[in-house]
Design a protein around this nucleic acid. Structure first.
Length: 243
DNA sequence: AGTCATGTTGACGA
DNA sequence: CTCGTCAACATGAC
Protein backbone atom coordinates (compact mmCIF):
# COMPACT_ATOMS: atom_id res chain seq x y z
CA UNK A 1 0.00 0.00 0.00
CA UNK A 2 2.16 2.82 1.17
CA UNK A 3 5.13 4.65 -0.22
CA UNK A 4 5.06 8.43 -0.17
CA UNK A 5 3.03 8.86 -3.38
CA UNK A 6 0.24 6.60 -2.08
CA UNK A 7 -0.06 8.78 1.00
CA UNK A 8 -0.32 11.81 -1.28
CA UNK A 9 -3.29 10.15 -2.96
CA UNK A 10 -4.85 9.55 0.46
CA UNK A 11 -4.37 13.23 1.27
CA UNK A 12 -6.07 14.29 -1.97
CA UNK A 13 -9.00 11.98 -1.31
CA UNK A 14 -9.54 13.29 2.22
CA UNK A 15 -9.53 17.00 1.35
CA UNK A 16 -13.32 16.87 1.33
CA UNK A 17 -13.13 16.60 5.13
CA UNK A 18 -10.70 19.44 5.72
CA UNK A 19 -12.34 22.10 7.90
CA UNK A 20 -15.02 19.61 8.97
CA UNK A 21 -16.03 18.93 12.54
CA UNK A 22 -15.71 15.37 13.84
CA UNK A 23 -19.18 14.28 14.94
CA UNK A 24 -17.99 10.90 16.18
CA UNK A 25 -14.63 9.21 16.59
CA UNK A 26 -14.06 5.59 17.53
CA UNK A 27 -11.80 2.62 16.90
CA UNK A 28 -9.37 0.16 18.44
CA UNK A 29 -6.41 2.50 18.50
CA UNK A 30 -4.68 2.96 21.85
CA UNK A 31 -4.79 6.73 21.66
CA UNK A 32 -7.35 8.76 23.63
CA UNK A 33 -9.92 8.82 20.84
CA UNK A 34 -12.46 10.78 22.93
CA UNK A 35 -10.16 13.72 22.52
CA UNK A 36 -11.10 13.89 18.85
CA UNK A 37 -14.84 14.18 19.39
CA UNK A 38 -16.14 17.59 18.40
CA UNK A 39 -12.76 18.77 17.13
CA UNK A 40 -12.48 20.56 13.81
CA UNK A 41 -9.82 19.45 11.34
CA UNK A 42 -7.57 22.33 10.43
CA UNK A 43 -5.79 20.49 7.65
CA UNK A 44 -4.41 17.21 6.38
CA UNK A 45 -0.70 17.02 5.69
CA UNK A 46 1.77 14.37 4.67
CA UNK A 47 5.41 13.88 5.49
CA UNK A 48 6.72 10.99 3.48
CA UNK A 49 4.71 7.96 4.53
CA UNK A 50 3.10 9.78 7.46
CA UNK A 51 -0.50 10.95 7.07
CA UNK A 52 -1.22 13.84 9.42
CA UNK A 53 -4.60 14.98 10.72
CA UNK A 54 -3.93 18.40 12.14
CA UNK A 55 -5.97 20.14 14.85
CA UNK A 56 -5.35 23.49 16.50
CA UNK A 57 -3.30 22.06 19.36
CA UNK A 58 -2.25 18.53 18.33
CA UNK A 59 -1.95 16.19 15.36
CA UNK A 60 -2.94 12.58 14.77
CA UNK A 61 -0.23 10.71 12.90
CA UNK A 62 -1.28 7.70 10.84
CA UNK A 63 1.28 5.27 9.47
CA UNK A 64 -0.07 2.49 7.26
CA UNK A 65 3.10 0.41 7.61
CA UNK A 66 3.06 -2.55 5.21
CA UNK A 67 -0.57 -3.67 5.36
CA UNK A 68 -2.54 -0.62 6.36
CA UNK A 69 -5.66 0.35 4.44
CA UNK A 70 -8.36 2.98 4.54
CA UNK A 71 -11.89 3.48 3.28
CA UNK A 72 -13.68 6.73 2.55
CA UNK A 73 -17.44 6.74 2.97
CA UNK A 74 -17.51 2.97 3.30
CA UNK A 75 -16.51 0.39 5.88
CA UNK A 76 -14.78 -2.98 5.98
CA UNK A 77 -15.95 -5.85 8.19
CA UNK A 78 -12.84 -5.38 10.29
CA UNK A 79 -13.00 -3.05 13.30
CA UNK A 80 -11.28 0.19 12.31
CA UNK A 81 -8.19 1.30 14.15
CA UNK A 82 -9.61 4.80 13.81
CA UNK A 83 -12.90 6.01 12.37
CA UNK A 84 -13.87 9.66 11.95
CA UNK A 85 -17.46 10.57 11.14
CA UNK A 86 -18.33 13.93 9.62
CA UNK A 87 -21.56 15.54 8.45
CA UNK A 88 -20.53 14.90 4.84
CA UNK A 89 -19.04 11.41 5.15
CA UNK A 90 -16.53 9.30 7.03
CA UNK A 91 -12.91 8.26 7.04
CA UNK A 92 -11.84 4.81 8.25
CA UNK A 93 -8.34 3.45 8.87
CA UNK A 94 -7.42 -0.20 9.38
CA UNK A 95 -4.34 -2.04 10.61
CA UNK A 96 -2.21 1.03 10.97
CA UNK A 97 -0.18 2.82 13.60
CA UNK A 98 -1.96 5.79 15.20
CA UNK A 99 -0.16 8.29 17.39
CA UNK A 100 -0.65 11.77 18.78
CA UNK A 101 1.87 14.54 18.24
CA UNK A 102 1.42 17.39 20.69
CA UNK A 103 1.52 21.05 19.79
CA UNK A 104 2.73 22.80 16.68
CA UNK A 105 3.22 20.28 13.86
CA UNK A 106 6.07 22.23 12.30
CA UNK A 107 8.14 21.45 15.39
CA UNK A 108 7.88 17.72 14.65
CA UNK A 109 8.98 17.63 11.02
CA UNK A 110 11.56 18.97 8.64
CA UNK A 111 9.47 19.39 5.50
CA UNK A 112 12.52 19.70 3.29
CA UNK A 113 13.27 16.00 3.92
CA UNK A 114 10.11 14.93 2.05
CA UNK A 115 10.88 14.26 -1.61
CA UNK A 116 7.32 15.25 -2.59
CA UNK A 117 7.01 18.35 -0.44
CA UNK A 118 7.24 21.78 -2.05
CA UNK A 119 10.04 22.48 0.44
CA UNK A 120 12.05 19.40 -0.65
CA UNK A 121 15.70 20.40 -0.57
CA UNK A 122 18.10 18.22 -2.59
CA UNK A 123 21.06 20.17 -1.26
CA UNK A 124 20.17 19.15 2.32
CA UNK A 125 19.94 15.55 1.15
CA UNK A 126 23.40 15.86 -0.37
CA UNK A 127 24.76 17.21 2.93
CA UNK A 128 23.19 14.31 4.79
CA UNK A 129 24.68 11.78 2.37
CA UNK A 130 28.11 13.34 2.74
CA UNK A 131 27.93 12.48 6.45
CA UNK A 132 27.41 8.75 5.81
CA UNK A 133 30.05 7.79 3.21
CA UNK A 134 30.37 4.20 4.44
CA UNK A 135 26.69 3.33 4.15
CA UNK A 136 25.36 1.47 1.16
CA UNK A 137 23.25 3.59 -1.17
CA UNK A 138 20.38 1.07 -0.86
CA UNK A 139 20.16 1.90 2.86
CA UNK A 140 20.72 5.63 2.43
CA UNK A 141 17.90 6.01 -0.09
CA UNK A 142 15.51 4.35 2.37
CA UNK A 143 16.55 6.67 5.22
CA UNK A 144 13.33 8.54 5.98
CA UNK A 145 15.19 11.49 7.43
CA UNK A 146 17.03 12.02 4.14
CA UNK A 147 14.51 10.79 1.54
CA UNK A 148 11.21 10.85 3.39
CA UNK A 149 8.59 8.99 1.39
CA UNK A 150 10.94 6.78 -0.60
CA UNK A 151 10.15 3.08 -0.20
CA UNK A 152 11.60 -0.11 -1.55
CA UNK A 153 9.98 0.09 -4.98
CA UNK A 154 11.19 3.63 -5.56
CA UNK A 155 14.64 2.63 -4.30
CA UNK A 156 14.97 -0.17 -6.83
CA UNK A 157 13.63 1.86 -9.73
CA UNK A 158 15.77 4.91 -9.01
CA UNK A 159 19.00 2.93 -8.69
CA UNK A 160 18.23 1.04 -11.88
CA UNK A 161 17.48 4.25 -13.74
CA UNK A 162 20.72 5.77 -12.51
CA UNK A 163 22.83 2.70 -13.35
CA UNK A 164 24.02 2.40 -9.73
CA UNK A 165 24.45 -0.93 -7.92
CA UNK A 166 22.49 -0.92 -4.63
CA UNK A 167 25.53 -2.08 -2.64
CA UNK A 168 27.61 0.91 -3.72
CA UNK A 169 29.12 2.92 -0.87
CA UNK A 170 27.73 6.44 -0.70
CA UNK A 171 31.19 7.99 -0.36
CA UNK A 172 32.49 6.23 -3.47
CA UNK A 173 29.72 7.36 -5.80
CA UNK A 174 30.82 10.28 -8.03
CA UNK A 175 29.35 13.65 -7.12
CA UNK A 176 27.29 14.02 -10.29
CA UNK A 177 25.91 10.53 -9.97
CA UNK A 178 24.91 11.12 -6.36
CA UNK A 179 23.08 14.29 -7.34
CA UNK A 180 21.33 12.37 -10.09
CA UNK A 181 20.11 9.79 -7.56
CA UNK A 182 18.89 12.54 -5.23
CA UNK A 183 16.96 14.26 -8.00
CA UNK A 184 15.57 11.02 -9.34
CA UNK A 185 14.10 10.09 -5.93
CA UNK A 186 11.84 13.12 -6.20
CA UNK A 187 11.17 12.87 -9.93
CA UNK A 188 10.31 9.18 -9.79
CA UNK A 189 8.00 9.72 -6.80
CA UNK A 190 5.88 12.11 -8.83
CA UNK A 191 5.76 9.69 -11.76
CA UNK A 192 4.82 6.93 -9.33
CA UNK A 193 1.96 9.17 -8.15
CA UNK A 194 0.56 9.67 -11.64
CA UNK A 195 0.92 6.02 -12.60
CA UNK A 196 -0.67 4.87 -9.35
CA UNK A 197 -3.63 7.19 -9.91
CA UNK A 198 -4.11 5.61 -13.33
CA UNK A 199 -3.77 2.06 -11.93
CA UNK A 200 -0.81 1.47 -14.18
CA UNK A 201 2.07 1.58 -11.72
CA UNK A 202 3.32 -1.98 -12.05
CA UNK A 203 3.53 -1.91 -15.81
CA UNK A 204 6.08 0.88 -15.55
CA UNK A 205 8.44 -1.04 -13.29
CA UNK A 206 11.78 -1.54 -15.00
CA UNK A 207 13.59 -3.49 -12.29
CA UNK A 208 11.38 -4.12 -9.25
CA UNK A 209 10.26 -7.80 -9.28
CA UNK A 210 11.74 -8.24 -12.75
CA UNK A 211 13.80 -11.28 -13.74
CA UNK A 212 15.64 -9.97 -16.78
CA UNK A 213 17.45 -6.70 -17.46
CA UNK A 214 15.64 -4.97 -20.29
CA UNK A 215 18.83 -3.20 -21.30
CA UNK A 216 21.18 -6.13 -21.76
CA UNK A 217 18.89 -9.12 -21.44
CA UNK A 218 20.98 -10.73 -18.69
CA UNK A 219 19.23 -12.06 -15.58
CA UNK A 220 18.56 -9.49 -12.85
CA UNK A 221 19.90 -10.27 -9.40
CA UNK A 222 17.49 -10.47 -6.48
CA UNK A 223 19.12 -10.07 -3.09
CA UNK A 224 18.47 -8.72 0.41
CA UNK A 225 20.93 -5.85 0.57
CA UNK A 226 22.35 -3.50 3.17
CA UNK A 227 21.79 -3.40 6.92
CA UNK A 228 18.09 -2.91 6.22
CA UNK A 229 18.04 -6.22 4.33
CA UNK A 230 15.34 -5.14 1.92
CA UNK A 231 15.18 -6.91 -1.39
CA UNK A 232 16.96 -5.34 -4.28
CA UNK A 233 16.63 -6.11 -7.97
CA UNK A 234 19.64 -5.10 -10.01
CA UNK A 235 21.79 -5.84 -13.03
CA UNK A 236 25.47 -6.36 -12.28
CA UNK A 237 26.25 -5.69 -15.92
CA UNK A 238 24.47 -2.33 -16.22
CA UNK A 239 24.60 -0.98 -12.68
CA UNK A 240 27.97 0.25 -11.51
CA UNK A 241 29.30 -0.94 -8.17
CA UNK A 242 31.20 1.91 -6.57
CA UNK A 243 33.24 0.58 -3.65
C1' DA B 1 -2.23 -23.22 -0.05
C1' DG B 2 1.86 -21.44 1.27
C1' DT B 3 5.02 -17.82 0.69
C1' DC B 4 6.26 -13.37 0.59
C1' DA B 5 6.14 -8.31 0.87
C1' DT B 6 5.39 -1.18 -0.94
C1' DG B 7 7.37 -0.70 6.82
C1' DT B 8 8.60 0.45 11.45
C1' DT B 9 9.15 -0.18 16.36
C1' DG B 10 10.65 -2.12 20.36
C1' DA B 11 12.43 -6.05 23.07
C1' DC B 12 16.17 -8.76 23.92
C1' DG B 13 20.82 -10.56 24.12
C1' DA B 14 25.71 -10.32 23.21
C1' DC C 1 25.43 1.32 27.01
C1' DT C 2 25.50 0.18 22.29
C1' DC C 3 24.98 -2.55 18.64
C1' DG C 4 22.73 -6.08 15.98
C1' DT C 5 19.00 -9.24 15.36
C1' DC C 6 14.52 -10.47 15.25
C1' DA C 7 9.61 -10.82 16.56
C1' DA C 8 5.46 -8.50 16.17
C1' DC C 9 1.92 -6.30 13.73
C1' DA C 10 -1.70 -8.51 10.15
C1' DT C 11 -3.44 -8.20 4.78
C1' DG C 12 -3.52 -9.49 0.19
C1' DA C 13 -1.18 -10.72 -4.23
C1' DC C 14 0.50 -14.43 -6.60
Amino acid sequence: MPEGPSIRILEEETRQFSGQKILSAFGSSAIDIERLNGKTIESFKTWGKHFLICFDDFTVKIHLLMFGTYRINERKELTPRLSLVFANGELNFYTCSVKILEGEINLHYNWYEDVMNKSWNPQKAKESLDKIPKQMICDAVLDQNIFSGVGNIIKNEVLYRCYVHPESRVGKIPEDKLKEIIDECSIYSFQFLEWKKNYELKQHWLAHTKKVCLRCDLPLHKKQTGVKKRRSFFCTNCQNLYQ
